[in-house]
Every structure is written in structure tokens, then in C-alpha cells.
Design a protein around this nucleic acid. Structure first.
Lengths: 228, 228
DNA sequence: ACCTGAACACCGTTCAAGT
DNA sequence: ACCTGAACACCGTTCAAGT
């Protein structure tokens, strides 16, 4: 029982929680100090007492959501654990599509903020457990992390407001559009239109993770190509 | 000789060109309608005659820069051509760091705007020339594209305003900071700190591209691991 | 057809004043 | 210590008016 319990005292936690809700509902443009003060029935000054500025608030919201996504049980081979972590991030970004640009912005403001090292660390620990040379760890972990963010971001862009039915229609329409593209200029897009129409996002995503895992463990053996 | 030549008539091209210059100089926050009208010595209404809104202007600026980056001569094996394209994008994003968040935003607004299909097409054509099964084309191309954007974005974040000397100092300081991280929480980041301090960005980037190319061509043969 | 420039609604942020 | 709320500078965008 804290001293004041009547009107649910303001706190950094409550502010971040409300920010996440606004972002989930209406995207990045849905979070303003106006909408935030309205929801929390307070004034801008009150928020600035707990939070330095909007950028810090977005960082905190990102941190909160990513932390939850990384807090998963992982057991099995390093490969399995990497798949679990990757899928956790993929699903989190699908649930919170605003994360994708936000992670890029946060990265570009300070390359090693609070979120990036944690993701690198979590993935990197499993990469180092794959038994590949230590000299390849950094490159391998980067490749995995970048693929996860990029693929998840693209998926989030598709998901956004659409429910499953709308989404199927959307993909269908997109695939049809590609099939009608000029075959001189876009032969490749035309050829994969069918795959796009029928693919399952999460399955496709995991296939890509496996592809990179194969590249990591294949090393420069007989299957790989080596550059001079 | 056009009817009016005295004061360099306004045009969509000139507006986009000025926008790119402002973005290069001061990042995304450096481009406002105030700074733009000032540089072009005109009013906001004049710009709105040629451009629908700021989002379209950013799209046009992105499109212009990426088009240049993709307009490179590529000859050699499909692998070589993919490396050339990848490095071209990497360097373009290093020269124009604002591209990185912008590509993410553009992707999240409309998944298949004008830029993304061109990049997918250019890379995808080479992937399909690798001689791997058509069913893997989409996944392979996605993995490459996402890695390129992610790695280039991270690099751009490091480069930003720093010159080479500052950059070396920056990496040195970052590596030192990681080495002093708690070894229970961040054992992996500690272990790769040395690699980060000494790595060459472009070389490291190409190594990652090769890693993914290896994964693509290794298929599910004896070198790869397959998931049940 | 192309441009001017005042005006509008909205944004993040500040700060003297309250309790 | 924590909150109020008016005020400020700035933003993207509009539009009647000019040429």
C-alpha cells in the first residue's frame, strides 16, 4: 500500500505502457504528447518529469517490447535456440509493426544503444556454440541479426492493419500485379510471383534462417565458393 | 533555350536534388519546407505544385540515390555480380546515411514501392543464375537483400558525421567499452570486441555476403544441416 | 501553368507557478 | 518531489490571390 493510491500515480512505467498501446493502435504517428496526456489525464509537464523527451520514450517503448520478446525459454541445439530467438523477434515485430523503423532509427542514432547489444549477445552466444572458428562469429551473428530485422520488418509491413483474410487478398493482388509486370524489366519478380502468393510467412522466415545457418557451418569446404 | 532562363525555373528535379543535398548535410531533420524554400528562394506553395507532400519528396530522393547506386556495370560470375551490386548499395548508404531509416519507412508504408522491387529484381536475376532450385530463389534473394540493408545501415550509423580518424577512435572506444562489460551478462560481446576494433567495414561486409552465398549454393548437401 | 505568402492546425518542449 | 497548463518556436500543408 503506497501512500497515494487514489488516482493511480503517474510513473515512467505507466507512461511507457501507454506509449506502447498508442503505438500498437495507430503506429508511430499515433503517439503524440497530446494523445498521451489525454490517455493519462495529465499535462505534458508531468510526462517530462519522468521522461527526458520523445526519443527517450520511443527507446523505452522499444526496449520494453524487445525485452519481452527475448525472454523466452530456449532449449535444444544451438541451431534450435537460434530459431526460437529469431521467431520470437519475428512475432514481436509482427505484433508491434512500429518496432521495425524504430529499431533502424535507434540503431542510426547510437549504433550500440540498449537493445542491439542484447540481441547480438543472445544470438552470438548460440553462434559461438556452433563450433565454428571464432574469427567468423562477428560476421555470422551480424548476418543473422540483419536478416531477422529485415525479414521481420517486411512481414510487419504486410501485416500492419490487415487481418488474415485481407492479407491473403493483398498478397494475391500483389502477386497478380507482378505477373503482369514487363517481362523484359522484371523477369525475376514475375517468376517468383507464384511463390509469394502461396508462401507461409513464418515458415518462409525460418527457411531463411536455416539458409544462413547452413552458410555459417558450411565454412569454406567443398560446398562453398571461395573468393580470391 | 526554354522560354524562361533568367532565374533557373523550379522543377521536380531541382527540388529533389536540393532535398538530397539537405539530407546529406544534416540528416532527415535537416530537410524541412523552411530550409528547402530558403535554398530554392521560393515559397512552400511553389514546391507543392511539383510535389504532393513531404513523404513523396523523401521517396523521390530515395529513388534517385538508389537508382544511381544500382546503375553499375556488372560482369563476371553471378556471385561476382551480386558482390558488386551489394557493395554499390553499401557505399551508397554510407554516403547517404539517411537512406537507411528511409528505406525501412518506405518499406513499411507500402511493401512494394518503387525501390524495393528494383533491388529485388537486380539481385534476384543473379540468384536465379546461380543454378539453384527455383523454389529457393525468393528466400535466397530476401536473405541477401535484408543482410545488405541491415549491414549497410549499421555501417552508415557508424560513419555518419565521423571522418576516418574520429571513426577509428570511436570504434576503439566502443570496443574498450565492450571489453569492460560484465562477463556474466555479455560474454559474447566481450569476446568479439577485438575483432570489431580491427575489422575493415567493406571487407567484413563482403565476407557476410559470401557467407550467405555459401548457404544458398550449399543447399541441403553434406555440408548443410537440415531441419525435420 | 506556375508561383506567392499569409494563415492554419498541430507538434515537441519549456517553465513559472502551484501542491 | 511531483504535477499543472499556458506559452513558445517550429513543423507540414492549404489556398485565395497574383502573373
Amino acid at each position: 500500500m503506497a501512500p497515494r493510491t487514489r488516482a493511480e500515480a503517474l510513473s515512467r512505467e505507466r507512461i511507457v505502457e501507454a506509449a506502447v498501446e498508442l503505438l500498437d493502435a495507430d503506429g508511430e504517428s499515433g503517439l503524440t504528447f497530446r494523445t498521451l496526456t489525454e490517455r493519462l489525464t495529465t499535462g505534458p509537464g508531468a510526462i517530462y518529469w519522468h521522461v527526458a523527451n520523445k526519443a527517450e520514450l520511443l527507446d523505452a517503448a522499444t526496449d520494453s517490447v524487445v525485452s519481452n520478446a527475448l525472454a523466452v525459454e530456449t532449449t535444444g541445439s544451438p541451431q534450435d535456440e537460434i530459431r526460437t530467438l529469431a521467431l520470437g523477434l519475428f512475432d514481436a515485430i509482427a505484433r508491434h509493426p512500429w518496432l521495425s523503423p524504430q529499431l533502424a532509427v535507434q540503431l542510426s542514432r547510437s549504433p550500440w544503444g540498449s537493445v542491439t547489444p542484447r540481441i547480438f549477445e543472445d544470438i552470438g552466444q548460440r553462434v559461438s556454440a556452433l563450433g565454428v572458428p571464432e574469427a567468423t562469429w562477428f560476421t555470422a551473428t551480424s548476418a543473422l541479426a540483419h536478416y531477422i530485422f529485415g525479414a521481420a520488418g517486411q512481414n510487419a509491413a504486410n501485416v500492419r492493419v490487415l487481418d488474415d483474410v485481407d492479407r491473403a487478398e493483398f498478397l494475391h493482388a500483389a502477386a497478380n500485379a507482378w505477373e503482369e509486370l514487363d517481362s523484359d524489366e522484371y523477369p525475376f519478380m514475375k517468376s517468383i510471383a507464384g511463390q509469394v502468393r502461396e508462401h507461409d510467412d513464418r515458415e518462409q522466415f525460418l527457411t531463411g534462417v536455416d539458409l544462413i545457418l547452413t552458410g555459417i557451418t558450411a565454412d569454406a569446404g567443398p560446398c562453398g565458393s571461395s573468393r580470391p
